[in-house]
Nucleic acid binder design. Structure first.
Lengths: 104, 104
DNA sequence: TATTCACATGAACAGTTTTTCATATGAATA
DNA sequence: TATTCATATGAAAAACTGTTCATGTGAATA
């Protein structure tokens, strides 16, 4: 029995579309954009990020986890602190494209 | 009395960050990505889009409205039909950046 | 002008996401 | 090793989003 034809739109499979949407979800929240933007400077600890973006530690940690799962940031431990940094060259480009659009 | 200092992160005002997040929200849903992707071909009517992406007319119209408010697409009426098309050069770039990230 | 076709829209509902609160864990230090 | 500091996490509450359903509107046509 032939497998039901999979939905496909010009080479993009349903699964890929969902992944794409999930990726953009990471940029679709102002807390997360603040975090990403904050990390443009380079590696920062969780508490530094909290101060910079004026959000409490728990909320920030939850979002850091989401960003990490999406492979947009990475982390390493240094003593008691955990340092986060960007893990993808596209992050800056994507955000800059967004800014370009808005500025028009 | 001095105005309360506005939150600002490296030149991005709170307001701009919110706009940026709102913009990326448009790419953060697979129905909307399908629509945008579908319009890569050029102008299409609402019913054409519905067929292409296999979604009902009401859902599609709601999303078209959102995309239009975000200035990612534009429309013109031709008789009974309304034709939609992309209204921003960045749309393709943003989506392609997203695909690049996922493919890694 | 009554009807039909193509699209738009408001409201309700279901599902998801984000924040908060309380608490847990892991590493350094007293 | 008991305590403190930095971060993580689960669960519940609060806020938001997307789809559906019913209906409305504008343009063509019978």
């Amino acid at each position: 029995m032939p497998k039901k034809e999979e939905y496909m739109l010009k080479g993009l499979r349903e699964q890929e579309l969902l992944e794409l949407a999930d990726l953009f979800k990471m940029f679709a929240d102002s807390t997360r954009i603040k975090i990403l933007y904050d990390l443009f400077d380079g590696e920062k600890s969780v508490s530094e990020i909290c101060e910079d973006i004026e959000m409490n530690q728990s909320a920030v940690s939850h979002q850091l986890k989401a960003l990490k799962i999406s492979k947009l940031i990475k982390s390493r431990r240094e003593g008691k602190q955990v340092l986060y940094s960007l893990d993808d060259d596209h992050v800056k480009t994507i955000i800059e494209m967004g800014r370009d659009h808005i500025e028009e």
